[in-house]
C-alpha cells in the first residue's frame, strides 16, 4: 500500500492511497505523470476555510453555476486545478445557501482518488 502525493496545476497537491507499491506498479515513481480521477459524488463542499476534519485533499474555489434538482444538486466550481463538478444534496445546498460566486473549499478523501498512469 502507498500514499501518493500528486502535484496538480498551480502548485496544488492531491493525496491518494493505493493498494499498489512502487514494486508492484512501476508508474509509482517520482516525477512520473499521472491523471487523477475522482467521482463528482465524492466531492464535499464547505464554506469554512479552516475545518478540523480528516479529509486530506482541500482546494479552494468559487461556485460558477448551480443546477438544483429535487434531491441532488450539481455545482460547477472554478478552482486552482480547473473546473470541478460536485454533486451534493439539495438539502445541503439550501442549508448552506450556496449560490453563484460564493467562495468555497472542496474536499475529497484520499481513498476516493484514482490514479491513471
Amino acid at each position: 500500500m502507498s500514499i501518493v502525493c500528486v502535484e496538480v496545476d498551480n502548485g496544488e497537491e492531491l493525496m491518494s492511497v493505493v493498494i499498489d507499491s512502487p514494486e508492484s506498479a512501476p508508474y509509482l515513481k517520482k516525477g512520473k505523470k499521472v491523471n487523477v480521477l475522482f467521482k463528482e459524488m465524492e466531492v464535499a463542499v464547505t464554506t469554512q476555510k479552516e475545518l478540523n476534519i480528516s479529509i486530506e485533499n482541500r482546494i479552494s474555489g468559487v461556485v460558477a453555476s448551480v443546477e438544483m434538482g429535487l434531491l441532488l444538486s450539481r455545482l460547477i466550481l472554478e478552482t486552482n486545478i480547473g473546473e470541478v463538478i460536485a454533486i451534493i444534496s439539495t438539502k445541503s445546498l439550501k442549508q448552506m445557501e450556496l449560490v453563484e460566486r460564493i467562495e468555497v473549499v472542496i474536499m475529497v478523501k484520499l481513498n476516493e482518488i484514482i490514479l491513471a498512469p
Partner: peptide, 22 residues
C-alpha cells in the same frame, strides 16, 4: 490496467436514464 482502481469490470451498457441532475 490504466487506472489504479482495483474493483473493475468490463461490460455493456443496457440503459441510460436521467434522474434528477444525474
Amino acid at each position: 490496467n490504466k487506472t489504479s482502481a482495483k474493483f473493475r469490470f468490463s461490460g455493456e451498457i443496457l440503459k441510460i436514464q436521467r434522474e434528477d441532475v444525474i
